[in-house]
Every structure is written in C-alpha cells, then in structure tokens.
Amino acid sequence: MGQVIVITSGKGGVGKTTTTANIGTGLALLKHRKVVMIDADIGLRNLDVVMGLENRIVYDLVDVVQGVCRLKQALIRDKRFENLYLLPAAQTKDKTAVSPEQMKNLCDQLKEEFDYVLVDCPAGIEQGFKNAIAGAEKAIIVTTPEVSAVRDADRVIGLLEAAGFEEPQLIINRIRPDMVKRGDMMDIDDIIDILAIDLLGVIPEDERIVISTNRGEPAVADESSKAGQAYRNVTRRLEGENVPLMSLDVEPTLMERIKMLFGLRARK
C-alpha cells in the first residue's frame, strides 16, 4: 500500500507543479519507486506540459471520474522512466467536475498499485484545493521566501491541520543565497520561525529550472543543476534518508576575494 502526498501552497506560481514533477521523477529515478502524479488543477493543467507528455493525453481525470474510460486508460507512462505515470487534468472543464469523494476514491484505488501517489494541487483554497487534499494523508507545502507566499502557506497549513493532516512538510523554493546574505530576502530561519513545520528541503533559484520546464524534462535528472541536486536531496529525505541541507554559499565575487586577500573583510 502506497502513500498519497499532496503538494500545495495556497499561492500560485511558487513551484507546486515543478516540485511535483521533480519529486515524482526523483522517486522513480533514484529509488525506482512506482509513482503516479495526479494533476488536480482541472481547467489550468500544467503538469503534463512540464513532464513533456501533453501530446499523449487521450483521457483525463474527469473522464475517469465520469466513467468515460477506465483508470488504466487515462494513465500516461513517462517517456523516460517506465515506473512513472501521470494522470492528467482536463483542460476544458472546471474544478466542479470532480468532488472530494470522487478524488478520495481515485487516490484509494491508485495507492493499491503505486508506492507514491503525488497530487499536484491547484492554487487557492476553494474546491480545487478541497479535491486535491481529499485523498491525501501527507502534505508538502511549497513556499518562496516572500512574505505573501509565506502568509498563504501559513493559511494552508491551518486548513490542513483542520482537515486532520499531521505534520505537513515544507519546501522553500527559489531562494537566492546572495540576496539572503545581503539581508534582502527572508532566510530559512525566518520562514521556519513563522510556519513552525519540518523542513523537507530548500531549492535554490536556478535558471536551469526554466530551461527544463520548457523542455519538459524535470531538473532532478540534470546532474549539473543546483535545483536538481536539491530535489534529489528532497527525494532521499522523503525516503527516510538523513541528508544535510546543501550549502548555498555563493562564490565570492572578484572584489570580495581581493578584499579577503587584504584581510579587509573576513569570510564569514
């Protein structure tokens, strides 16, 4: 029996879909787990695009729920990893096409067969959110180091706790160590202070994410990507391994190095 994990954030654009794609791919790639990712963002689907599987969609989640097709028919096998599957959302319907009970039913069926069922939650806290969390027993909260994103994450954690979720885990996405160092960005401790939940990982800002998203190839499989490395660490932690947070120190600039040379400014 597998586990159902919902990836949620409240705020849009913080990286739920990217995180779902990378954790899903990571679990299949590094741990050879059987994984299915569900795109619960009906009407604004993206996970298929990020996975590069858009053109393979024939049936979708709504078709399964409405009995137009069998569950197996709607599952799309990933093009690189054969134990990784996607259940895409419908694009021409809306969130009301599915009820929380139906989602729970679907997740229950899927976890019989898969080690991990990852649900990519839509932004917001309305019907789509309620659908996405209905079948899940664990939650991963994604936030960015911005006050607004953290505020929304806090709200969502509250809702999850009210819905009976124990210990949601946190991923802080798009952190820029140089800005944190200058004091221009909330640092990890600030965020943990407010949210007070377990930290699952910190993902540095990385332009390779943009490239990999556009190409439909998750960065977790990219050895040279820093964000990919961070997602590989997240994957290992999910599997119970104890992996220290990766160092996010920035290379000192030339000026700083010269200053260091003259002892004008000690390296911290």
């Binding site: 053109n55 393979r56 969609i57």
Partner: peptide, 15 residues
C-alpha cells in the same frame, strides 16, 4: 498540432 485525431486514429508529432 499537439495531437491529431481522425475517426478512431490518434497521432502525435515526433518528440
């Protein structure tokens, strides 16, 4: 196209 269907046949562009 992302995908083409004619009658019962489905095709997608090459990767």
């Amino acid at each position: 196209p992302t995908q083409l269907r004619i009658a019962g046949v489905i095709a997608r562009p090459p990767e």
